[in-house]
């Protein structure tokens, strides 16, 4: 999930813009990690050393690893180890930005350092996903300051991200949630959760985005906006809320009633008390998760 968080971090800091993010997300599945990127991430080489080896590579037809070993920056064992290391996808995302000239290897080195510091992750490794790290990142970057910080809200966001990764496509970036006064909807789906209060959850997007989203969720290609596309959007929302209901029941012994999902068209969503918009940026478009409570 770190890739998604890092995209948000880069946007928030103005290091990248949304178009650059769109482009990078669209290419991430076809891109391959380079040894130099890995070496910086592992702290084995500095950005300057990587740049130096890349420069040599442009003049001599040799592999990056050979050059780095010859110059004493890496050992043969380190090169072999890196080939077999599982590296988080956010490193790949950063590499695409370097390739696109959005930032340099030197910036990449600093960004990872700042990111860990700001998220207070210095004690954690980012190489394998860790529940405590994810919770911390959600609270750090996806918390709406006007809302109450509680484990159930945090759980909902985590389940949303996990469900998108598992059932739709992992190459997305969640933008920072915002409290809004109203949200005009042309097409969307909605589902109500009832416990002590009512929570109205919605997914809004344009029809083209809905078709792409539904195709990925249903694992079949929809080339027109039809009843299956609508059903896929409803099914995803129902799935997400279903998972939430089960988790809340298991962890907090609280029962939540779930109403059937429904379609909404040409309405303006208003808050019961608050209205929160959590935009999710995919390369094929943006979906808005909107919660009113």
């Amino acid at each position: 999930m770190y890739t998604q968080f890092l995209g948000n971090y880069l946007l928030q800091r103005g290091i990248i813009n949304q178009q650059q993010l769109f482009d990078a997300l669209g290419r991430i599945s076809q891109s391959k990690l380079k040894l130099g990127t890995l070496a910086i991430n592992e702290g084995l080489m500095t950005a300057r050393e990587v740049d130096e080896c890349l420069f040599v590579q442009t003049r001599e037809d040799r592999r990056f690893g050979e050059i780095a070993i010859e110059r004493g920056y890496l050992t043969k064992e380190q090169v072999e180890d890196m080939m077999h290391t599982q590296t988080p996808d956010f490193v790949l995302l950063c590499q695409i930005f370097v390739e696109d000239g959005v930032f340099s290897y030197e910036d990449f080195e600093r960004i990872i350092f700042d990111y860990k510091n700001e998220a207070e992750l210095s004690d954690f490794s980012l190489d394998t996903e860790n529940q405590a790290v994810i919770k911390k990142l959600i609270e750090k970057f996806f918390w709406v300051s006007e809302t109450q910080k509680d484990d159930r809200n945090s759980m909902y966001i985590e389940l949303l991200f996990n469900s998108l990764i598992r059932f739709v496509d992992e190459n997305f970036t969640p933008l920072t949630p915002m409290v809004i006064d109203e949200f005009p909807v042309t097409f969307g789906v909605t589902q109500r959760l009832i416990s002590k209060g009512t929570y109205d959850t919605h997914i809004e997007c344009d029809r083209e985005t809905a078709m792409a989203f539904a195709s990925k969720y249903a694992k079949e290609e929809f080339s027109e906006f039809n009843e299956y596309v609508v059903a896929a959007m409803e099914d995803f929302l129902n799935l997400l809320n279903g998972l939430y209901v089960v988790n809340v029941s298991n962890q907090f012994s609280v029962d939540i009633e779930l109403e059937p999902p429904a379609v909404i068209t040409d309405v303006t969503l208003k808050p019961q008390n608050k209205l929160i918009d959590l935009p999710i940026v995919y390369s094929f478009g943006t979906i808005h998760i909107i919660i009113s409570y």
Binding site: G242, V246, S249, N250, D255
Partner: peptide, 8 residues
Amino acid sequence: VSSVGTQS
């Protein structure tokens, strides 16, 4: 067949 599977 459901997405909601609480123990109860």
